[in-house]
Simulated scan of single mutants.
Amino acid sequence: MVLIPAGTFTMGSDRFYPEEAPLRRVFVDAYWIDEIPVTNRQFAAFVEATGYTTVAEIAPDPRDYPDMLPGMDRAGSLVFHKSPVPVDTSNPGNWWRFEFGADWRHPLGPGSDIESLELWDHPVVQVAYADAEAYARWSGKELPSEAEFEFAARGGLEAADYAWGDTLAPDGAMMANYWQGLFPFANQMLDGWERTSPVRTYPANGYGLFDMIGNTWEWTSDWWSETPRGARKAPASKSCCTAKNPRGAKLSDSFDPAHPGVRIGRKVLKGGSHLCAENYCQRYRPAARHPEMIDSATSHIGFRCVSRGS
């Protein structure tokens, strides 16, 4: 783990997506954070030690999902499928498919496995929030807050768009694993990877942390709200307006208003993933944030842990 010193920074962005605003001053106490996202090798050790079964390995209970289609009460999770042609990017159903038998051991479906794909040192994926939380408890750690993740991801840079500065690919250098080309059908793979990449493939940020941007989204402990809870736009000189160790919204605030009958909370994801592209989801940035239902497991979400002890 890496020690992140206590400090104040400008959180958020007013240059990309509305849910990242407003800019606000935030103070966080010192904490330790994992140098890398949790890998398949590390997660396998946890499962072997505890016998833990992930959410994606358990068939959903139809009583919890009254609108479930017939035949969907089987274990599985969401897997990305590149489209053969340009598609409507407003409909994620054009590239996400629920695959029966997809889980952390079989991230692309039952015909795949981490052994044959040589994924031991890649970030673990297909983990729902409860899975990440269970691993954190087992390891004596916790999941980071949104503010802790963003502060660490910035690597000591104040208000830069990216974790390494204000240019996405300085002098053409690939600084993270994201989608180059037109999403979701034309990945030029200038970074060398179609999907996830091994941890430490790209340069560490200013704090010595790897993969804080791109590769996989990462769970945080904060409940989602469209506007960050308690966010106040204030001049940096007004220390009275600096939020200290902010935490997320209330559970009730995190429900998706587009689906009023669904009462499954959404947590904040940070960091972006290998599916973020310039023409779609430019969220390979420290300020970027995204809501995810806590029962969801996908092929592009992982996590890392923090420790707030001495």
Rank of each mutant, 00 (worst) to 15 (best):
M11S: 07
R25K: 07
A30V: 08
T54I: 10
D64V: 01
G71E: 05
R74Q: 14
S77I: 12
S77A: 15
L78V: 06
V79L: 09
K82T: 15
V85T: 14
P86N: 07
N91D: 15
E99S: 06
G101M: 05
D103A: 12
R105K: 05
G109K: 05
S112F: 13
S112V: 10
I114E: 08
L119C: 06
W120G: 03
P123F: 02
Q126L: 12
V127K: 03
A130I: 00
A130D: 11
D131W: 04
G140M: 02
E148T: 08
E150D: 15
R154E: 08
G155D: 08
A159P: 00
A160S: 09
W164M: 11
D171A: 15
Y207Q: 06
G208P: 09
I213D: 03
N215H: 10
W219A: 00
R229M: 02
R229G: 05
R232F: 01
R232G: 01
K233E: 12
S239C: 01
C240Q: 04
A249G: 06
A249T: 02
G261R: 12
E278Q: 12
C281V: 01
Q282I: 01
R283G: 01
R283C: 11
Y284A: 12
P286L: 03
A287M: 02
S296V: 11
S296Q: 10
S299Q: 06
